[in-house]
C-alpha cells in the first residue's frame, strides 16, 4: 500500500545549468516532476548564470570559481543552505568554487573578482545525493505505482558523479551503487554493469568525434552484452553522447545499436505513474517506444488479474 510521504517539505535551491535549459530539457522537466512527487520543493536560483564548465576550468580555476560562485552567492542571499544540481559538470564547478573560497590563499582573489557578499555557508549536492541520501530508497519505493518489473536497466554513472572521492564525497568511486539501488526500488532488474564509470568521451563530440565514437561504442556494447533493454544516466553530457550520437557510434563501429538512454528521473517518473509526455520521453533521439510498450502491456496484464492488492 502506498504510504503517504511525511508532510514535512524539503526545500532546496535548484541550479539546472545551461545544458538542462536546452539540449537536456527533459532532464530538467523530469527532475522537477519527480522532486515534486517526493515532496521536495525546488526553488530555481533567480537569474542564475553559466558555471563556466570545462572551458573555464582549463582557463583558470579561479575564473571557474567566480563564475560558479555568483550562483552560490545568490542562493545564499535567498537564505538557502543547500543547492542541488542534476548536472555533474555544474556540481564540480560549484564545489570547486567552495573549495577555492575555503582556501585562505585564494579567498581574497576570489571575493575580489566575484564582488558579492558570500559566507560560504552553503552546500552543493547532486540530484542522486538528494534522492539517495536525503529522501532514501524506501520513500522512493513507497511512491511507486507502476513498477518497472519487466525492464532490465543498467545504470551508467560516467566520470564525475563520485570522483574524485574526497571532493565529491558521495557514493563509491569505483563501484557506485546509488542508481542501482534506486532502479531496484523502482522494480527494475539491474544487471551487473562493469562499465559504470568508464568515460564516454565527454566534450570531444564537438572537437574529436571519433573519440566519442570509440568510447561511447564500448559502453553501448557492454550494455547490450549484459542484456540491458535501456541505460539510465544522470549526466546531460553522457546522455548526449549515448543517445544523440548513437547514430554516429553505429556508423563508427558498423553496428546497429538501438538502446534507449533515459535519465534516472525519467525512469522514476514512469514508475511513479507520470505520463511519458510530462517526462519529456518524446525528446529522446533513440525512441523509447519499445520500453513504453512493455510497460503498458504489463499494466494491462496487472489490471486483467485484478491489479495489485489495493
Amino acid at each position: 500500500m502506498p504510504v503517504e510521504l511525511k508532510p514535512k517539505k524539503t526545500t532546496v535551491a535548484y541550479y539546472q545549468g545551461c545544458s538542462l535549459e536546452q539540449m537536456a530539457s527533459e532532464f530538467d522537466v523530469s527532475t522537477r516532476v519527480v522532486c515534486d512527487a517526493l515532496g521536495v520543493e525546488l526553488v530555481e536560483i533567480p537569474d542564475w548564470s553559466c558555471c563556466g564548465s570545462t572551458p573555464a576550468h582549463s582557463y583558470d580555476p579561479l575564473l571557474s570559481a567566480a563564475l560558479s560562485g555568483r550562483n552560490l552567492a545568490i542562493a545564499e542571499q535567498q537564505g538557502f543552505d543547500v543547492v542541488m544540481t542534476p548536472c555533474p559538470g555544474c556540481l564540480k564547478a560549484l564545489k570547486g568554487a567552495l573549495k577555492v573560497f575555503k582556501d585562505p590563499n585564494k579567498r581574497e582573489a576570489f571575493l575580489e573578482i566575484l564582488q558579492m557578499p558570500f559566507q560560504g555557508n552553503i552546500q552543493a549536492v547532486s540530484n542522486l545525493q538528494l534522492y539517495f541520501e536525503t529522501i532514501g530508497t524506501e520513500a522512493i519505493r513507497n511512491r511507486v505505482t507502476k513498477p518497472l518489473t519487466s525492464l532490465s536497466i543498467v545504470p551508467y554513472y560516467g566520470c564525475l558523479i563520485s570522483r574524485p572521492p574526497d571532493f565529491m564525497q558521495f557514493d563509491d568511486p569505483e563501484n557506485p551503487i546509488s542508481m542501482d539501488r534506486i532502479l531496484e526500488a523502482l522494480g527494475a532488474s539491474v544487471p551487473e554493469f562493469p562499465f559504470k564509470t568508464e568515460c564516454c568521451g565527454a566534450t570531444y563530440g564537438v572537437t574529436r568525434n571519433e573519440i566519442v565514437g570509440k568510447l561511447t561504442g564500448r559502453i553501448l556494447d557492454m550494455a547490450n552484452r549484459v542484456g540491458a533493454q535501456a541505460i539510465a544516466v544522470s549526466c546531460p553530457l553522457c546522455q548526449q553522447n549515448l543517445d544523440l550520437r548513437q547514430a554516429q557510434v553505429n556508423r563508427y563501429w558498423r553496428r546497429d545499436f538501438h538502446m534507449p538512454v533515459l535519465y534516472i528521473s525519467q525512469f522514476m517518473g514512469l514508475a511513479f505513474g507520470v505520463e511519458p509526455e510530462s517526462l519529456g520521453i518524446d525528446k529522446l533521439f533513440v525512441e523509447a517506444d519499445s520500453l513504453l510498450d512493455i510497460l503498458s502491456r504489463e499494466g494491462e496484464r496487472d489490471q486483467s488479474v485484478g491489479g495489485k492488492m489495493a
Binding site: S58, C159, L160, R163, P164, P165, C199, Y204, I211
Partner: peptide, 10 residues
C-alpha cells in the same frame, strides 16, 4: 586531450 575524467586521480 585529457577529459578531466578523474580516473587517474581516483
Amino acid at each position: 586531450l585529457c577529459a578531466a575524467c578523474q580516473a587517474c586521480t581516483t
